[in-house]
Simulated assay, not measured.
Amino acid sequence: MSHTAHIPSHRKPRRSASKLAVRAGVAGGVLSTLAMAGTASASPAAEPATETTLEMPVLNMDLGSQVSSAVIKAADNTRAQALVGELNAQEETARTGAAAEAKLAKADAQAKADAEKKATDEAKRQADADRANRGDGRTQLASAKGSSAGSSASDDDSGVRAPATGSAAAIINFARNQVGKAYVLGGTGPSSFDCSGLVQAAFRQANISLPRMSQDQSSEGTSVSLSNLQPGDVLYWGSRGNAYHVAIYSGGGKFIGAQNSGTGIVERSLSYDPPTGAVRIL
């Protein structure tokens, strides 16, 4: 046995490669730090570093509530926009309806104006025809006054006929009892009459049935000259079969008729409104 057999070896153990790498890295880091510190201290013109503190926003982690609120708000906005759109549509409909009503009202007003103008023109035409007929009537009356006094159809020297008798008297008496009553278009009595309504009612007193309208009444009986009138004859204005007014000859150069709403039922001289012609029904 050797005398060195129990003496431990003084040889240092071999370091592993990993430990050497760690130590080398640490040493390198320390040296780098010292170098940077030295550089900083060696620069007298460098300003001292200012420490800045940044505030981090506080995050609201209740994302579910935020999303729900946003959805509700969006739904409310949508409903509000829909309501505004509906109101706008209603306003537009109202404006359109008002415009249509105004257009119809204008058309109705124009139609009424046209009808009134037509009625006015017709009334003027009839008035012109009446004035022309009055001239003819005056000529015929003048001729009647110059006729023979002995004729049974002429007036006597006083210009007054003998009182009517029989059916003519019944007709004339009824018509004369209506004098002063109102003229109403379409009236047939007892409180008001129009022209043909009065003639029809008067002849009914003699049990004679006449048509209702003046045109038809002027077609009844036989035509007679205005110079050959007898009490009870029906006078007409216009043309026979197309008369627009009728009355009853009451004798003495007078007639009884429902003239218009202004005069009512009156007894007037033929010269007041000379008729166009006459028919004899009795």
Score class of each variant (00 low, 15 high):
Ser143Asp: 12
Asp76Trp: 05
Glu51Cys: 01
Phe193Gln: 03
Ala206Pro: 05
Lys19Arg: 15
Thr53Ala: 13
Gln217Pro: 03
Ser69Phe: 05
Ala111Met: 11
Lys73Ala: 15
Ser214Leu: 06
Pro231Leu: 06
Pro231Met: 04
Val160Trp: 09
Asn242Cys: 03
Ser192Arg: 05
Ile256Arg: 04
Gln81Asp: 14
Ala35Phe: 07
Thr53Lys: 15
Met1Cys: 09
Ala278Tyr: 01
Val22Cys: 03
Ala243Glu: 05
Ser68Pro: 02
Ala119Ser: 11
Ala109Phe: 02
Ser69Gly: 13
Ser147Ile: 01
Asp62Glu: 13
Lys73Gln: 14
Arg176Ser: 08
Lys254Leu: 03
Ser154Glu: 03
Ser271Gly: 04
Gly264Ser: 06
Val22Arg: 14
Lys117Glu: 13
Gly232Phe: 02
Gly29His: 04
Val179Gly: 05
Ala89Gly: 10
Thr50Glu: 14
Met36Phe: 11
Ala5Phe: 12
His3Thr: 09
Ala21Thr: 13
Asp157His: 06
Ala35Gly: 15
Arg176Gln: 13
Ala149Cys: 04
Ala175Arg: 00
Lys118Arg: 13
Ser167Thr: 06
Asp273Ile: 06
Ala258Val: 05
Asp156Ala: 10
Ala129Lys: 08
Glu101Gln: 13
Ala162Trp: 00
Ala206Arg: 01
His10Gly: 12
Lys145Asn: 13
Ala164Lys: 00
Leu104Gly: 05
Asp128Ala: 13
Ala144Asp: 10
Glu55Leu: 11
Ser143Met: 11
Glu91Asn: 09
Pro48Leu: 12
Ser250His: 08
Ala132Cys: 02
Gln178Met: 12
Leu87Arg: 12
Pro48Asn: 12
Ser214Pro: 06
Thr33Cys: 08
Ile248Ser: 01
His10Pro: 15
Val279Lys: 03
Leu59Gly: 05
Val246Arg: 04
Ala45Phe: 06
Met1Lys: 06
Glu220Met: 14
Arg95Phe: 04
Ala109Gly: 08
Val246Asp: 08
Ser41Leu: 15
Ala21Gln: 10
Leu20Lys: 13
Ala144Gly: 03
Ile256Asn: 02
Gly180Arg: 05
Ser218Pro: 11
Val67Met: 10
Ala102Gly: 12
Ala27Ser: 15
Asp157Glu: 13
Gly135Trp: 04
Lys112His: 08
Cys195Ser: 10
Thr222Gly: 03
Ala169Asn: 04
Asp157Phe: 11
Asp108Phe: 12
Gly262His: 11
Gly97Arg: 13
Ala45Trp: 08
Thr222Leu: 03
Ala132His: 08
Ala105Val: 07
Arg23Phe: 11
Ser152Ile: 07
Ala105Asp: 14
Ala115Asp: 09
Ala5Asn: 09
Gln217Leu: 02
Ala100Asp: 14
Asp233Gly: 02
Gly135Glu: 15
Asp155Glu: 12
Ala243Ile: 07
Tyr244Val: 01
Gly197Ser: 04
Ser16Pro: 09
Gln205Ser: 10
Val179Glu: 09
Leu185Val: 05
Ala82Val: 10
Gly64Glu: 14
Thr96Gln: 15
Ser65Asp: 11
Glu267Pro: 00
Lys117Thr: 14
Lys145Arg: 12
Thr188Asp: 05
Ser32Asn: 03
Asp136Val: 10
Leu282Tyr: 02
Ala37Gly: 12
Asp155Met: 10
Ser43Asp: 15
Gln205Lys: 14
Pro48Cys: 06
Lys145Met: 11
Thr188Ser: 12
Tyr236Asp: 02
Ser218Phe: 01
Ala278Met: 07
Ala164His: 00
Asp273Arg: 11
Ser219Pro: 03
Ser227Ile: 01
Gly253Phe: 04
